[in-house]
C-alpha cells in the first residue's frame, strides 16, 4: 500500500514510450483527449482503437497492469453503456422485451461511447504507467510556464505537488499509527451505536491534523531559513531533455489527427 502511494502507478522500464520526455507525453495525451471527440463513425473509432493498441504494444506494458487499472472503471463503462442503450430512442428496434425496447441507434451510440472511454483510459494509463509522478510534475511545470505571465502560480503548484508527494506516505503511516493507538485504547469504528462510532472518528482526525500542521510549520520554517524565495533563479537537479523520439511522438499525433478529420462523417 505504501509503495503504491510513493510511485503511483509507475512501472519502470526502458521502452520507447518510457524514454520519451514527460513534456512530449503530456502534450500527446492532452491533445489525444481532445481529438478523441473527432471520432464519430466506425472507421474513426476503429482507428483510435488500433492506434491505442499499437502504443500499448510499443510501451511493452504487461496487459495485466492495464486491465488492473481498468477495474475501478469497468462499472462506469457498463453504466454509461446501459444509460445509452436504455435512453436513446432512435432507429430501428432490435430487441423488444415489451416493457423495454433496445434501439439500433442506442446500441451503436453505447458501443461508440464505451470505445471512446476505453481508449481514453488506456492512453492516460499508459502515461501514468510509464512516467513517474515526479517527472509528470516537472513536465507540467515547464509546459504551464507561459501561464506565469497571467500570474498563475505555476511554480508554486508544482512545489505543492512535490511536497504532497513527499508527505502523503508519512501521513499514511501516521494515520495507521493513530488508528492502532486508538484501538489499543478500546475505540471501535465498526461496532456500537452510530453516535459512538462517529465519536470514534474524532480522535483519529484531530491527531492527524495536529501532526500534519506541526510538520507543515517545521517545513515552512526550514525553507524560509534556507532562503527559499520561489521559482525565480532556481536551478534544477532533474533536467528535462528533448530527443528525436519526442519529435516522432508529436508527428504521430499530427498524422492521427489528420486521419481522424479525413475519415469522420
Amino acid at each position: 500500500m505504501m509503495e503504491k502511494m510513493i510511485f503511483g502507478r509507475y512501472i519502470p522500464g526502458d521502452s520507447f514510450v518510457h524514454k520519451l520526455d514527460p513534456r512530449a507525453k503530456l502534450i500527446f495525451v492532452f491533445a489525444f483527449i481532445f481529438i478523441v471527440f473527432f471520432a464519430n463513425n466506425a472507421v474513426t473509432y476503429g482507428l483510435l482503437l488500433a492506434f491505442t493498441l499499437l502504443i500499448i504494444f510499443i510501451s511493452r506494458i504487461r496487459l495485466y497492469f492495464l486491465i488492473n487499472g481498468l477495474k475501478p472503471i469497468v462499472f462506469l463503462m457498463i453504466f454509461t453503456f446501459l444509460l445509452h442503450t436504455l435512453f436513446t430512442r432512435e432507429g430501428a428496434v432490435i430487441l423488444d422485451f415489451g416493457f423495454l425496447k433496445i434501439y439500433e441507434q442506442g446500441l451503436k451510440q453505447g458501443i461508440f461511447i464505451s470505445t471512446r472511454f476505453l481508449v481514453l483510459v488506456f492512453m492516460t494509463s499508459i502515461l501514468t504507467l510509464t512516467t513517474s509522478p515526479i517527472s509528470i510534475t516537472d513536465g507540467l511545470e515547464v509546459l504551464l510556464n507561459p501561464l506565469k505571465k497571467l500570474k498563475a502560480p505555476v511554480h508554486e503548484l508544482a512545489l505543492m505537488m512535490s511536497i504532497s508527494l513527499r508527505f502523503i506516505p508519512t501521513l499514511m503511516d501516521e494515520t495507521d499509527k493513530i488508528m492502532k493507538a486508538q484501538m489499543a485504547r478500546g475505540s471501535d469504528l465498526s461496532a456500537g451505536p452510530l453516535k459512538d462510532r462517529l465519536k470514534a472518528v474524532v480522535p483519529l482526525l484531530v491527531p492527524l491534523f495536529v501532526s500534519a500542521f506541526k510538520r507543515a510549520e517545521d517545513l515552512a520554517t526550514a525553507m524560509e531559513v534556507r532562503g527559499y524565495r520561489g521559482g525565480e533563479g532556481r536551478t534544477r537537479y532533474r533536467q528535462l531533455k528533448w530527443d528525436y523520439r519526442d519529435t516522432i511522438c508529436l508527428i504521430s499525433l499530427v498524422v492521427l489527427t489528420a486521419l481522424l478529420v479525413f475519415y469522420r462523417n
Binding site: M160, I163, S164, F167, L171, T175, L208, A216, A220, M223
Partner: peptide
C-alpha cells in the same frame, strides 16, 4: 502568499489523499 501558506495547502492536499482511503 508566503511559503507557510503554500506548505499548509500542500499538507491539506496530502490529508485529503489520506482520508480518501
Amino acid at each position: 502568499m508566503n511559503v507557510k501558506n503554500y506548505v499548509l495547502a500542500a499538507f491539506g492536499a496530502a490529508i485529503i489523499a489520506v482520508l480518501a482511503q
